[in-house]
Amino acid sequence: MRLNQFIAHHSKYSRREADKLIKEGRITINKEVVLDFSYQVDKNTKVYLNGKLLRKQEGYTVIVYNKPKGEIVSKHDDRGRKVIYDSLPKRFSHFKPVGRLDFASEGLLLLSDNVKVVRALMESALERVYLLKLSGFIKESVFDAMESGITLKDASAGGHNKSKIKAMQFAPFVGYTCIKNTEKYSKIKVIIKEGKNRELRRFFAHFGLEVLDLKRIAYGFVQLNNLPMQKVRFLERGEYNKLHAFLEKDYIE
């Protein structure tokens, strides 16, 4: 594992922040300052930050929350809107969310008490599955863009009105299933591997289609299934086994 990746996995710092720490000479191995970002760390290497040994955070818990529309994925909202922590049991108040679902979206949200696990899941290419209801007929050009990907110089339509993001590149969808397609409205299940800012809303808005409903039903190997709205469950044993395998692979590579 690269040194900057090791630091990100075993501290509160991101990889970019880890690069800065290395550049500043604050990282030592065998009492020597290491300035090489790509230095390879193995399980026997002892890495120190400001003279303190970086230890692997032992143990973690991951929960699934079925987020309803009308809740913000945040600790606080400056507009006084309801946040997910208003609904989550107090014992999960320190858990951090894996990515976001916007105010008008619902469905599966993963949270964990381990920031490294959160980061690994959020930065992964695990498949995200969504059910969408759209405001009109899905034309062939939309299906073509889903299959081949598209780059937009102006993807502000569908985004938040205060968002500074304008241009956006949309990778080809992993897959999709058109459930209903009429002039009045359409329903479609889509699978993507990214989680950019309001990505699906921006994509379909480019083709004049408003996302009326958006529900995430799966994130990688975790399914929402029949979890009631605003309820929480722990990962099942099989899901934890898959998560362990995913994290081992992620840490090694």
Rank of each mutant, 00 (worst) to 15 (best):
T45W: 02
E210D: 14
L3S: 03
A245N: 11
G149A: 09
V34A: 07
V47K: 07
R119L: 02
M229S: 10
F92P: 08
D19G: 00
R91K: 15
A125M: 09
Y219E: 00
K164M: 11
I188T: 10
V83F: 12
L224T: 04
S141P: 01
M168E: 11
V222T: 05
D250R: 04
P68Y: 03
D77I: 01
K215S: 07
A155E: 06
Y39R: 00
R198Q: 08
G175F: 04
K46H: 12
F143T: 12
V73Y: 00
A145L: 15
L200A: 01
S14R: 03
V190K: 05
R79H: 15
L109D: 07
N197I: 03
R15A: 00
E32I: 11
E253F: 13
A218R: 08
Q230R: 05
S186M: 13
P228G: 03
K67H: 00
D86A: 12
A245Y: 03
D102I: 06
R79L: 15
I72S: 11
F246C: 13
K12N: 11
V142L: 15
H244A: 07
K96Q: 11
N44D: 08
A120I: 02
T151L: 10
A157C: 08
F170C: 04
T28G: 15
Y176A: 02
G149P: 06
H9A: 06
S186I: 11
L134M: 13
K116Q: 14
R91M: 07
H160D: 08
D36W: 09
E17S: 02
F173H: 03
T151N: 12
N225V: 08
Y240P: 14
